[in-house]
Amino acid sequence: MKLLINTFIIIALSAIAQLFLPWWSIAVVAFLVGYFATDSGWQAFGAGFLALVMLWGGYSLFIDQANEHILSSKMAQLFKLPSSYLLIIITSIIGGIVAGLSAMSGRLIKGLM
């Protein structure tokens, strides 16, 4: 339950942050949420990872549907990927790992204090 709550907090805060700040603001948000709200390093990682997989994955999927895959199929070719959906998966996993690791760092530094 806590995992899900933290996940949604990260989704909401990082979505807002990214409207004004660079892409790596997701790491700052995840770090802070990891620090203040999570119970363990792995839970923090899970929340950060899930949050950004859902946020970046969901948003890019939404854009891609509205665009009828016009651009994603061109970008997939450009990066020699077999499918434009793979591009969405890569996008979400990269966001997920950055936020997951950062949330974990936030939790672990709390353990030191």
Partner: peptide, 17 residues
């Protein structure tokens, strides 16, 4: 990171049809 972020990267250039 910049290029793949759907908030700043190439996804922003995928126009709704």
């Amino acid at each position: 990171g910049r290029f793949l972020s759907p908030f700043t990267g190439f996804w922003q250039n995928a126009e709704s049809t």
